[in-house]
């Protein structure tokens, strides 16, 4: 076997090279590239809005219900606010920052990085993974109980679920995150469970068991790292759903609290004035659509490439 050590195939790759390889996979797929570009566009716009917007997004500096023109590129809304500025600022709360309520310990009243959609998906991933791993690995009664509970949750209409959560806890960014977490977790848990059922038949799990490792070690150290690929792809899609959910909540008027703009609220406001101003409804709707489509394309392309790469 001494001769084998010099084989070029097994040469050590540095961390950087490995990353390079991953990035190359993304660009191998045209679908994933386009998706990534669309997502990055909104991130970029969001970052810019943190330091600069064309006008102040929350001030009625202009005439109401203007059509798109040379000063206000996308027109103004029913309160005379610049839609472009609001659109840019609306990115923040979805992708870039979460505002904590005033009575939150230590960080009360401040904003933490990471948008509501991202935190919501993170929440559902965490909750879903814990539930899914337990159901899949322990099986038996654990599996029965966890999956029955989750099925019951899925059977509940999502909008009603949102309403219940918000009615119970009031409005706020954290509540929206919680709502997304609760509605997203069952899906994640099902996915994790099915992947776990596959992984747990592998010999390396048997090896860990014969070492007498604890159940938690096996679930989180042996199984979880091996399902992160599909989980990552799934979470991309989930960010899309979350944005949609925020839009829906905003549309219902129970979303992120005003006055800071978010896309859902913008659509909702514009809808009420649709007879006076047909233009205002288009930009936020398009924004939601492109971001969601972008994430979906990215996830799809990635999944396809990863699968192909594995073969």
């Amino acid at each position: 076997m001494a001769a084998a050590t010099s084989s070029p195939r097994t040469e050590q790759l540095s961390r950087l090279q490995r990353w390079g390889k991953t990035v190359r996979i993304i660009f191998e797929s045209r679908v994933a590239t386009v998706g990534l570009m669309m997502v990055l566009f909104w991130f970029l716009l969001g970052f810019i809005s943190l330091v600069w917007t064309p006008y102040r997004p929350n001030f009625s500096d202009f005439e109401q219900n203007l059509r798109p023109n040379s000063t206000n590129w996308l027109g103004t809304d029913h309160l005379g606010r610049d839609i472009l500025s609001r659109l840019m600022a609306g990115t923040q709360v979805i992708l870039l920052k979460t505002r904590l309520p005033g009575d939150f310990p230590i960080l009360g009243g401040k904003a933490i990085p990471g948008g509501v959609a991202l935190w919501g998906v993170f929440g559902s991933l965490t909750l879903g993974s814990v539930l899914g791993l337990n159901a899949g690995y322990r099986s038996g009664w654990w599996d029965q109980i966890i999956m029955q509970l989750l099925d019951a949750l899925i059977a509940f209409p999502q909008i009603v679920l949102y309403l219940v959560v918000i009615a119970a806890l009031g409005q706020g960014d954290l509540v929206v995150i919680l709502a997304i977490t609760v509605t997203g977790a069952p899906g994640v848990a099902r996915l994790v469970r099915s992947l776990t059922l596959d992984i747990k038949t592998r010999d390396y799990i048997r090896a860990a068991e014969t070492r007498g490792e604890s159940v938690w070690f096996i679930m989180f150290r042996e199984i979880l790292p091996n399902i992160r690929g599909p989980l990552l792809v799934d979470s991309m899609l989930r960010v899309g759903y979350a944005i949609f959910a925020i839009g829906t909540l905003g549309f219902l008027g129970i979303g992120l609290p005003p006055p800071d703009p978010d896309w859902g609220n913008m659509v909702n406001d514009a809808r009420r004035n649709i007879f006076f101003n047909q233009w205002a409804v288009i930009p936020p709707s398009l924004a939601i659509a492109t971001l969601v489509i972008g994430l979906n394309l990215f996830a799809d392309g990635l999944r396809e490439e990863i699968n192909r790469y594995q073969k």
């Binding site: 592998r202 010999d203 390396y204 090896a207 042996e222 790292p225 091996n226």
Partner: peptide
């Protein structure tokens, strides 16, 4: 192929 954990 399954005796080793692919992540470590």
């Amino acid at each position: 192929d399954s005796t080793m954990n692919p992540s470590y």
